[in-house]
Amino acid sequence: MLPDFTNPADWLPWAFASLMGLSILVYVVLDGFDLGVGILFPLAVPEDQDKMIGSIGPFWDANETWLVLAVGLLLVAFPQAHGMILTALYLPVFIMLVGLILRGVAFEFRAKARDHHKRLWNRLFFTGSLMTALAQGFMLGLYVMGLDQTLATYAFAMLTAVFLAVGYSFIGSTWLIHKTEGALQLKAVRWGRESLWGVVLGIGAVSLATPLVSTRIFDKWLSFPEVIYLAPLPILSGLLIVWLWRMLRAMPFADDRRSWLPFLVSTCLFTLAYLGMAYSFYPYVVPDRLTIYEAASAPESLFIILVGACFVVPVIAAYSILAYVIFRGKATALRYD
């Protein structure tokens, strides 16, 4: 899996694929919980809704920026793949964008609009979050199916769309468990229990479908001795799921101890599932059609971006963490003062 580090044409595309993969993962976890909170939104009573908004208010913008970075990296590092993927996914991308627009503006408008418009913006906030999650799940499904557009692949993509939306609700509820207290927290625990199945089915569906669609991926996983090296991945995921399930049955713990644990464990679970996918598709950026090496831009352009990224990404991580530290603790309704 490791490239030849003496040859820029070899390691630069690899470095960019990793960087892009990393930002997609960070996006899925971070905006995943924002979107999940949005999907759970109508289930809460109005007073709690303000707290739910408060729990993501200071973060959602920065979280969404990881998507911009991921697309940006795809765009700059693998321009051909960027064109191929996004033209093939024209419609789901569009639906996701509409969802992101609605979610983002509804968030601001609901805080400022007159009271009788607030209901409308609440509804749009939910709709936008749901649309985004469904569209992303749909794209995931089509991507796994090698971007083929047939009835069967659409059916599969519909399934992954639902699973991803439920999966986001799951990570959203683990976030709420950490950021809220009292009745809302109890509800979040229940939501978490009820949506765990989405995560299980989602991971299951993608893991089963990927090797079936492509013999290349089948061999990568199920030939000897790979199957032994890779065994820890599914086993660990299974253990994490069991742990989550048991924890969610017992929560909240006394004195609200370890309220952050479910979120952390689900992040690990998402990461494992993601690593599995990355392993399946590497070195392809468009499944079975275009490798990262064929799609990469000129090395000199990649290099100049990488130099900047090495300086800037740690700084970005630092101040993102700063924001989370400043707004740590239980969420309150948001105020500008």
Partner: peptide
């Protein structure tokens, strides 16, 4: 590509992270 990438890296993350602190 590099120009857009620099915009994301040097500007978007900066504003997006600090706008939360500025507003709330």
């Amino acid at each position: 590509g590099p120009l857009l990438a620099y915009e994301v890296l040097t500007a978007f993350f900066l504003e997006a992270a600090f706008v939360g602190i500025m507003l709330f």
